[in-house]
Design a protein around this nucleic acid. Structure first.
Length: 375
RNA sequence: GGGGAGAUACCAAAGUGGCCAACUGGGGCAGACUGUAAAUCUGCUGUCGAAUGACUUCGUAGGUUCGAAUCCUGCUCUCCCCA
């Protein structure tokens, strides 16, 4: 499924190719988040033409609640349903176990939760989450885990990690005893947990690596802990996860986070920042971060990002985008989302290019200065 | 011409003797957001100050009172009804 193409001589950064039925993905890759079968505010056409997203995310929890497995099954799977013929990865709902924690209870069997939509009671088990993801039909599916909060005491983190491991065994078994439903092979990725504890992360990485899945994910990071800890955990885990398989850092992050994580050997990323923060007025440019709602842009009629990677980046002015976002106009959210996603994809394109050319670290260090800049 | 209602901060609008520098909403300004319960949430919004605080405000000019956005009198303006 995965081949490493080029490794940085001075760090763990590498490029690779990820083969799926719906296409080959160059890594490192950023995957726009499309929780409910849509990258919020962005047409599939723009995802392809403007942003050139190679793979996007969906979410098991959200799709299961709405439209539900019946509709998804009848539609012929998520690709047909949303008319997206490139790869898709679905998250298992493990993050919702964390973010909707007030509405759920965990047991050995699984997670018992109430729908945030209508309050109805449901249970996710490692098995049912595989079944649902068979029906959704993404190319890459995730094992059901518990994403621990931060802070999280050691005993809880260990118990939770062990539970995630037991759930993984059950998920793998179910996965191996069931078939794909739409005529192409799906891949199951397990998830490393262990909170912020070195020894737990190490144990978890060993356990996950031993499962022998075609790719591995790191979860439970970027939930409020300092960034230094994120990097430290990635470093520990990546020293154990096999090099010949893709490593997916779930939910991360800022452009700077991503460059640092690439340096530590991560291949896949997803994050809501470009879309959500974009909707809320934060615009990423090669010059730095803009809060487009700030008054100082009200009469700045220069392009959103002169060197920006998408059509919208130079077609619309800062002043116009500010007006749209401040007015709550839908077009503002749309432009900001397209621009930010295109920026993220551009950043990853550049990262790949510089890894291939062998000067990733110099480039990265320059970029980090510019990217952290607030203008 | 007669009768009635009202004037509160950028806007709208509460408050009708001390707990009022003044509820609340909007607007404005700033911040947050990391496997999306988020087109969301938080803070500030009379002046000066980092802050304790000081100073100036509720159409306007006076008055009553220990104390007034609130009570009284004159004035100015606005709106409604009848002729």
């Amino acid at each position: 499924m995965f081949e490493v193409r080029k490794k940085s001589p001075v760090s763990n950064a590498r490029t690779g190719l990820l083969h799926t039925y719906h296409g080959i993905i160059s890594t490192p890759v950023f995957m726009p988040v499309g929780t409910a079968g849509t990258v919020k505010g962005v047409l599939q056409r723009d995802l392809k033409q403007e942003i050139d997203a190679r793979i996007i995310l969906g979410n098991t929890y959200h799709l299961y609640l709405r439209p539900g497995t019946d509709v998804l099954s009848c539609s012929g799977g998520i690709h047909k349903f949303m008319n997206w013929d490139r790869p898709i990865l679905t998250d298992s709902g493990g993050y919702q176990v964390f973010s909707l924690s007030e509405n759920r209870k965990l047991s050995e069997e699984g997670a018992h939760f109430r729908s945030h939509i209508d309050g109805s009671a449901h249970t996710f088990t490692p098995e049912s989450v595989v079944d649902i993801q068979r029906i959704i039909g993404a190319d890459i599916i995730m094992a059901f885990d518990e994403c621990t909060p931060y802070p999280c005491d050691y005993d809880y983190a260990k118990e939770s990690m062990d539970l995630t491991h037991r759930w993984l065994d059950r998920a793998v078994k179910r996965f191996e005893n069931t078939e794909d439903l739409y005529g192409f092979r799906q891949f199951l990725f397990p998830i490393v947990q262990g909170s912020v504890y070195d020894d737990l992360r190490k144990q978890s990485a060993e356990y996950i690596a031993a499962a022998g899945m075609p790719g591995n994910a790191i979860g439970g990071l970027s939930v409020g802990e300092p960034t230094e800890i994120i990097y430290a955990m990635i470093d520990i885990v990546n020293s154990i996860l096999p090099e010949d398989k893709p490593r997916y850092l779930m939910g991360v992050g800022t452009p700077v986070n991503i460059l640092e994580a690439i340096d530590l050997g991560i291949d896949m990323f997803d994050c809501v920042i470009p879309t959500r923060n974009g909707r809320n007025g934060m615009i990423y440019t090669s010059e730095g971060i803009i809060n487009i709602k700030n008054k100082k842009w009200s009469k700045d009629f220069s392009p959103i990002d002169e060197k920006g990677p998408s059509h919208v980046s130079h077609y619309y002015s800062k002043a116009y985008l500010r007006h749209l976002i401040i007015s709550g106009e839908l077009l503002g959210a749309q432009i900001a989302s397209i621009h930010n996603l295109a920026f993220y994809l551009w950043l990853l394109d550049e990262a790949r290019r510089h890894i291939e050319e062998g000067d990733f670290n110099n480039w990265k260090n320059q970029m980090i200065v510019a990217l952290a800049n607030r203008i």
